[in-house]
Design a protein around this nucleic acid. Structure first.
Lengths: 194, 194
DNA sequence: ATGATAACCAACCGATCGGTTTGTTGCAAG
DNA sequence: CTTGCAACAAACCGATCGGTTGGTTATCAT
């Protein structure tokens, strides 16, 4: 990897961490620069402005991260149990510092969807991709599921509840509350089976 | 009402609208001042700083608004149907401009819970109050509900899903998606009955 | 050896932020 | 009639923001 590409990756990685912690608007370029150990000229050599840096972080860091997080759970032979195990292990292993930051997708959705159209469309695209993943997984085992279910609707419901539960855990700082909502979500998911 | 109290109320009302639209941190005092038609000296006569203004907005505007929104649904004879009617009529009557702004409680939770402890504790208190309202309503008709239910857990689940669905509608700008998730939430809620 | 280019640095810019200071007005009590 | 305080207005402050500019260094083909 060339020096330039190395610097670019470093910027994106650190910017992703800052955005995850403080949101996009509250993230200061100065902080990124000092953490990277580079100057502002270096950053603006690689990115035309802050917004383009944000888009790059979303596409090159957040999206692959989200897909890598959800994919394994959904490609199990039994995606129902795969999802429940995924949610449960996440709520069990969650430490306080993670609970505070929340899901990067949900964070950006809350913050930027009604602020910048570029962000909104990228977030929307990712939400649809995630939803399609869940629908595909359910379709593969649709013989085991209740026949009247609308998979798209159910998939959005699951993601909405998951995001809402991460939101709740931000104020409580208590993973037991998160675990409770996740437990209830797993009840719901398992009840999708015949 | 005295002139001073009138000015104070005007500031809070307009600040509440700005915070609801743009979040707390992105809300500019200058904008509030010009919308109110007052000077900065006037604002700082009534509030010691921006944070205290934010607290006042939360306690004197958002909290009463939220309680007035949820209370009627929960004090029905049948809180299950009350909640479903509440959610459904909200998703039906929602216009695009409302969908973009989301729920004030959820917005502040996402933005401020890990930024300011004063906000976090106030939000947490409100979440607990809302949860208690739901638990109380369910307890009154517990004879009609499935016996194995943990009401607190169920209540948090409902609120989490509702907040997650408002989050989803921010990106889609399409109330049909919101309606779908709400419809699935109503399925879940009605299934709480025996 | 030299010119070109990629990759970067340091200093600076205007704008805006939350917050402070000083001054002014209207009314009400003495 | 004047004194005093409540209720503001207007100007200003330092800090920080995203962004720009002009130069510097290292590499590499010619």
């Amino acid at each position: 990897m060339s020096d330039a590409e190395q610097t670019r990756q470093k910027i994106i990685t650190i910017a992703a961490d800052e955005i995850h912690q403080h949101g996009f608007q509250a993230t200061s370029l100065s902080t990124i620069l000092s953490r990277c150990g580079i100057s502002k000229g270096a950053l603006y050599y690689h990115f035309t402005n802050k917004l383009e840096l944000g888009y790059a972080v979303f596409e090159e860091n957040f999206i692959p991260l989200l897909l890598a997080t959800w994919q394994p759970a959904l490609s199990q032979d039994d995606p129902i149990e795969g999802l429940c195990d995924f949610f449960t292990s996440m709520s069990d292993s969650m430490v306080c510092s993670e609970a505070v930051c929340g899901c990067p997708l949900n964070n950006l959705c809350e913050e930027m969807a009604n602020v910048d159209e570029g962000f909104r469309l990228r977030i929307l695209s990712m939400q649809q991709k995630l939803n399609a993943l869940i629908v595909d997984a359910f379709t593969k085992v649709k013989g085991d599921l209740r026949p009247e279910l609308a998979f798209g609707q159910v998939a959005y419901f699951i993601v909405a509840t998951f995001h809402g539960s991460t939101s709740l855990s931000k104020t409580s700082r208590n993973k037991e509350l998160f675990q409770q909502v996740i437990a209830e979500l797993c009840h719901y998911i398992r009840a999708l089976k015949k």
